[in-house]
Amino acid sequence: MNDTKIKITNLHKAFGKKIVLDGVNLELQKGESLVVIGGSGTGKSVLIKCIQGLLTPDEGSIKIDGQETIGADKKQQEQLHGKMGMLFQGGALFDSLSVWENVAFGLLENQKMPRKQAKDEAIKVLRQVGLGADVADLYPSELSGGMQKRVSLARAVATKPEIIFFDEPTTGLDPIMADVINDLIIDSAKRLGATALTITHDMASARKIADRIAMLYKGKIIWQGTVKELETTDNAYVKQFINGSSQGPIQVEI
């Protein structure tokens, strides 16, 4: 009971007339890795942004460690952000800062760590994601896409968060690099004992990193279960999605 890390109840969010989240219920246990799958534009990103407080939901409740986050004051929100790390889809590295300053951003700005110590710490984290000390002084624009993802991952885990969000971690990478990133995600989540919430439509990635998978469709969670249950489910929507077929109950709106 006390092991629930995130509890989302009846979450609603609409932009104008467009309903994006229509009553999402989801629960994450401590240390668990949950992957939310769903087609493009089904509100996966909106879901993550609501949990992080980047968007304010219209209705519903999000509890982290039993504490309500919606309507939390500034101080509480900053405290919550201290518990979270996020790997953004495009990396979202600060391009005016060098690689190590990016990785150490949270340490420098919030924990007020001295620069020298922060740099050592950043290099240590960079090594964990397979990057050498020689990239530390480069700028993000000098790195390849795969390396940028690694740096972004390093930044997300550098503050030792309790919850890590992964927004389409493998999008835009070749299959081998994608698998490397998958391994790194599993690895870093394990090392920190963190709760991980990933959104993706890459099924290979989902199968690999998930303890549990949930499918978001039309603003609702229509199915959830373990990876094993995913293969044997007779839910027509899930079947169509994981087989990547254009025929089935899910109609693509063009």
Binding site: K49, H81, A92, E109, T159
Partner: peptide
């Protein structure tokens, strides 16, 4: 550019107020 590449969101998730920064 920072907004559309989610760098401003990244600031928030790193507990930094973009207005201040």
């Amino acid at each position: 550019t920072m907004r559309v590449t989610e760098q401003i969101d990244a600031l928030v998730t790193l507990s930094t107020n973009p207005f201040k920064y």
